[in-house]
Design a protein around this nucleic acid. Structure first.
Lengths: 239, 239
DNA sequence: TAGATTGTTAATCGATTAACAATC
DNA sequence: TAGATTGTTAATCGATTAACAATC
């Protein structure tokens, strides 16, 4: 089974499990749980690829290096996906988590900024694997406008607002200079974009409940690595 | 004051503050605190750039959207950097946090994989801003080997182990296909690399205390955004 | 000195783990 | 039925917030 097939598993139904709350209004789920969901998604995909049909929380906990208790608690935030005495049906669980994560929503994204990072991201299979289509890129550089990257056309920034309005864009990936981040975001929101994936390093001010901003600070990640290296170095020197 | 000057502030001393524990063996600091440090680093840099000389935890808390209590607790994990009745000296605090985060350690990094992401990262000012030098790239593609990206030479993967040994490399940035991630990591560790910044999407098995792996899963970040969009969509439909 | 604000302890809150009854 | 494993409640652990004495 290849990657592409894995994306499309979608709604597999089973007549086991203690009930499926997926369509009822969802109760509050803590950010800690939400942040773990994509990891389950990845591991379950891997299990399917390896032909694994069923798995218990105990077995999965060993593979993922977490407690079985945590897995059961996490999954039960969204409904009873398992069966006592049996465990979890891998494909079914994968389909459910995909559904929760919106993999089948067909979200439409644009990349704003066709610089190095923008071009690297649009070429990354990540979007396709998660059911997000990249429909356009935008830049101010005349040399890039009109060209394509990985089959995606680069448009002028002047067209940004109209394009989003006309093409019902859900997500904007910001890979432009941080100075333009706030202004551009306001334009995007006016044009109906409700998800901002922000790589600019500028933390965006956003007080609207209906808009979600996810900031990616690669530099912060690098610094936590440096912190750990520095700590180990200091410990060594102390001995 | 420009970016480059900001990097080098280093050890500014002041005769206020209740004592400086930076050189004594550091007590355990929780991961939650460590993950917040780079954010302080960024905000303090911005404050310096704006000419701000001193700041209280209350004022900083408003800017950063956290509690003043948390700021004081976080900073006190590393020593008393403030002064009662006065607050914190911005430059001094920035210097201290830089020190804790190893900004002045002059860590040496290589990028393994000169594909789209590797090339985008090496061109990013992030490394320089955090005192990490990018000394080489590696790839298997004959067309890339011998060339340079942002002034950094691309070497053959065959030279990887020897190069690291001879050039005392601290950090390897992994931007190669996930299939090679584990093997390459083992090579790197043999060659003395102690920090792995892993963009491959493969979670590396590493049981050595002296090696630190930081996994970056951009896809996971995208999925939490999709989760939120999906959630808002469902809520809308329920109303 | 009076005012301000830290450093630090105590109280609260939330998240994780353990335990076990329910049940397949 | 007996065994296995979930779903869920209760116990523990850790992180955040509040409060305030110390002190600049």
């Amino acid at each position: 089974m290849n990657n592409d097939e894995l994306e499309i598993i979608g709604d597999i139904h089973q007549n086991l499990g203690t009930g499926d709350n997926a369509s009822s209004p969802r109760a509050y789920v803590s950010p800690a749980v939400i942040k773990r969901l994509p990891r389950y998604f990845r591991y379950l995909r891997e299990l399917i690829r390896n032909g694994k049909m069923r798995i218990s929380s105990g077995e999965l906990s060993k593979i993922m290096n977490v407690t079985a208790s945590q897995i059961r608690q996490d999954l039960n935030c969204f409904g009873g996906f398992g069966q006592q005495g049996y465990g979890y049906n891998v494909k079914y669980l994968y389909a459910k988590i995909s559904e929760i994560l919106g993999v089948n929503c067909n979200f439409r994204a644009i990349i704003v900024g066709a610089g190095n990072l923008g071009r690297a991201l649009v070429r990354n299979p990540m979007f396709t694997k998660r059911g997000v289509s990249t429909v356009a890129m935008f830049d101010i550089d005349e040399n890039l406008i009109g060209g394509t990257v990985a089959g995606v056309t680069v448009h002028s920034m002047d067209e940004l607002e109209n394009f989003c309005k006309e093409n019902s864009i859900d997500i904007a990936v910001l890979t432009l200079p941080k100075e333009c981040a706030q202004d551009t975001t306001e334009k995007l929101v006016r044009a109906g974009v409700c998800g901002i994936w922000n790589f600019t390093g500028k933390e965006l001010e956003m007080n609207r409940e209906d808009i979600k901003v996810v900031n990616v600070h690669l530099g912060d990640s690098l610094m936590t690595l440096c912190y750990e290296l520095n700590l180990r170095r200091e410990k060594k020197e102390d001995n």
